[in-house]
Amino acid sequence: MNDSALDSAEQYQTIARAIHYICANAKRQPTLKEIAEAMGFSEYHLQRVFTAWAGVSPKRFLQYVTKAHALEALRASQDVLGVSLDAGLSGSGRLHDLMVSCEAMSPGEIKALGGGLVIGFGLAPTPFGQALLGWTPRGICHLVFCDSDESVQIESLKSRWPESTLQRDDLAASQLSGRIFAKELERGKLHLVIRGTNFQIKVWEALLQVPSSRVVSYRQLAELAGVPKAQRAVGSALAANTVGYLIPCHRVIRSDGELGSFRWGVARKQAIQTWEACSDG
């Protein structure tokens, strides 16, 4: 197999397998040869594919999956808890610079179950595998990763908005994905339309203020959201998020440095964190 034979989805599957192996064996620091043999690839091939995707070698990636690195990242994120939150987050983080904005759907819109609403949707490649995207004239309302039968995710979208008119457009979805995951992003161009309880929206809006390549603990996020004693409920709010990546649940880890859960898989969570860190230099 050569690099050109791998499309973006297949490339991510290779990377996901490598990440899973690296994370599972990080304590003993496996060599490039060991990782490549576990993947069934040559060292040269794995090095090329991994570096092209992540921007760093598998060996460098090991640094990102150690608990020491995670704990250091948590300590570095303490400033996001300050009163001058916006000033503290004025760095060059990719999604922070993008200034993703969002608005909540009104109770009336939610009660109508999408009646009179036109939702475009489609499957698109991303650096982290296939994703199902959904959007309205007001903004993006859905982004979930698809590791199994795509029909399951499509039915989930339909059941969430049973009275809406869904219009499939995979080309538009691919174009939207290209904007979301582009290396060079334009400021202020993406708008989210989100549906959730008041508590969930409060948590998601707090999470949007955590810049790319940074992580916070569940406790820190609870403080950011103004609910310091509701760490368990914060975790439930993250699990209910249906706008993956843009509402960056992947940036929340446990206070002991462990990754914690992620509805689209821990390997993908680690992949996104590392991809952002490498993209931000």
Score class of each variant (00 low, 15 high):
residue 67 K to I: 15
residue 19 I to N: 01
residue 11 Q to Y: 05
residue 62 L to R: 03
residue 49 V to P: 02
residue 63 Q to R: 11
residue 48 R to Q: 09
residue 58 P to V: 00
residue 27 K to V: 12
residue 29 Q to Y: 07
residue 63 Q to L: 14
residue 57 S to L: 06
residue 37 E to V: 05
residue 33 K to E: 02
residue 67 K to A: 15
residue 38 A to F: 05
residue 57 S to D: 11
residue 20 H to G: 13
residue 19 I to L: 12
residue 14 T to H: 05
residue 13 Q to N: 13
residue 65 V to I: 11
residue 65 V to R: 01
residue 27 K to P: 00
residue 60 R to P: 03
residue 18 A to P: 01
residue 31 T to C: 02
residue 26 A to P: 01
residue 13 Q to D: 15
residue 62 L to N: 14
residue 69 H to T: 06
residue 31 T to E: 09
residue 53 W to Q: 04
residue 37 E to C: 10
residue 41 F to W: 03
residue 66 T to N: 07
residue 51 T to G: 11
residue 55 G to H: 02
residue 17 R to F: 04
residue 33 K to W: 08
residue 11 Q to R: 12
residue 22 I to Y: 05
residue 19 I to S: 07
residue 65 V to C: 05
residue 60 R to I: 03
residue 63 Q to G: 13
residue 62 L to T: 09
residue 16 A to Y: 04
residue 32 L to G: 06
residue 51 T to W: 00
residue 34 E to Y: 02
residue 31 T to I: 10
residue 32 L to T: 08
residue 21 Y to D: 01
residue 18 A to L: 08
residue 52 A to N: 11
residue 32 L to S: 11
residue 31 T to L: 09
residue 70 A to V: 11
residue 12 Y to H: 05
residue 53 W to T: 10
residue 57 S to E: 10
residue 44 Y to C: 05
residue 16 A to L: 03
residue 23 C to F: 15
residue 65 V to L: 03
residue 62 L to V: 04
residue 35 I to N: 01
residue 59 K to A: 15
residue 70 A to S: 12
residue 53 W to H: 11
residue 47 Q to C: 06
residue 53 W to N: 14
residue 18 A to I: 11
residue 38 A to D: 12
residue 38 A to K: 12
residue 41 F to M: 10
residue 23 C to L: 11
residue 18 A to R: 07
residue 12 Y to E: 12
residue 70 A to P: 02
residue 31 T to F: 05
residue 54 A to N: 02
residue 64 Y to P: 00
residue 62 L to F: 06
residue 38 A to V: 04
residue 11 Q to G: 11
residue 43 E to D: 13
residue 61 F to K: 02
residue 34 E to T: 10
residue 41 F to H: 12
residue 38 A to Q: 14
residue 67 K to C: 13
residue 39 M to N: 07
residue 32 L to E: 00
residue 57 S to Y: 08
residue 55 G to M: 03
residue 38 A to H: 06
residue 20 H to E: 15
residue 35 I to E: 06
residue 63 Q to Y: 13
